[in-house]
Amino acid sequence: MHATVSTAVPSAERASEAARNAKDSRDDRLFGWVLKGCALLVLLALVGAAGSTLWLGMDAFHTFGFGFLTSAAWDPSNDQYGALVPIMGTVGTAFIALLFAVPVSFGIALFLTEIAPQWLRGPVSSAIELLAGIPSIIYGMWGLFIFAPFVAEHVKPWLMNNFSADPPDGQVSWIVQHVPWIAKFFASEYPFFGAGVFTAGLVLAVMIIPFISSVMREVFQTVPTRLKESAYALGSSTWEVVWDIVVPYTRTAVIGGIFLGLGRALGETMAVAFVLGNTFKFSWSLLETGSSIASTIANQFGEAQGLQRSALMALAFLLFVVTFIVLLIARLMLRRLATKEGK
């Protein structure tokens, strides 16, 4: 086309231009491939993490079969490994974390979107997000040196007095006498020892509050103002607007945010490594010490050999698969909101 417009262009120049175009398009393609290769590394990291732990954990899965999941034996001296206690510890701490973090996060999000005056919202939400910036090892230290003794002194005796069949004050409470099973969850051999599933769950709760509350705050802000204003105009109170308009409108994303927090809580290592106690005795009690998958790996992998190492890899594989599924659900639920917001 160029040539037909100006015939005066020398053929050498035309040739060099064609060469340059060819070079540009080749460079473009190469550039695109390099970028794509880098993007595929993200995929590779996930597949690799699952694959490598499964590969090195195969030995344990073969040796113990399905019993690996249901056996409570974790006995390196006899080379017997079962994942039940670490699984229970992981699930138990994450459950307690959600039990406390969800209502508190909801309250914070409600405060930041509906109640607080404008000038207060920025500083308070920055402060809450600061919690997310604190390294998890600091949570672990604080949990061990400060929070566990606090729980042992102020919280645990109260819980045991009210919910345990063997309370320190000697009087079995009305609740324990009338609610079956409850005492099972609050038994403890050492009433004044702070470490345990309950304490670890509380530390995790503090850790995941900023994650859950910031998702909730963000999704609450996506509710169209006219919906809320219509409800206010009909005479609703703030609470009624939140509970009947905001929450139903954002339900999926709120659950997504909760799952995001759950994913964090399941995979957290350092915050619970100290306060869980690292014992492998099966117990239903929340006040007893235990261990989680991540803390078991952190504590034992360094010295582990042979089958023990394989069992730890198998644990890592289980943890990775479970957190992957939880995070997948979280992201799917959050994505649905993003598309709704776009419309």
């Binding site: 990291a45 964090r264 990775f320 992957f324």
Partner: peptide, 21 residues
């Protein structure tokens, strides 16, 4: 989507992955 999942994947498992490879 997967990048968002990697964002909150358990870091200890990523450590074990690097240990393996």
């Amino acid at each position: 989507f997967l990048n968002d999942i990697l964002l909150s994947a358990p870091s200890i498992v990523l450590g074990l992955f690097v240990y393996t490879v």
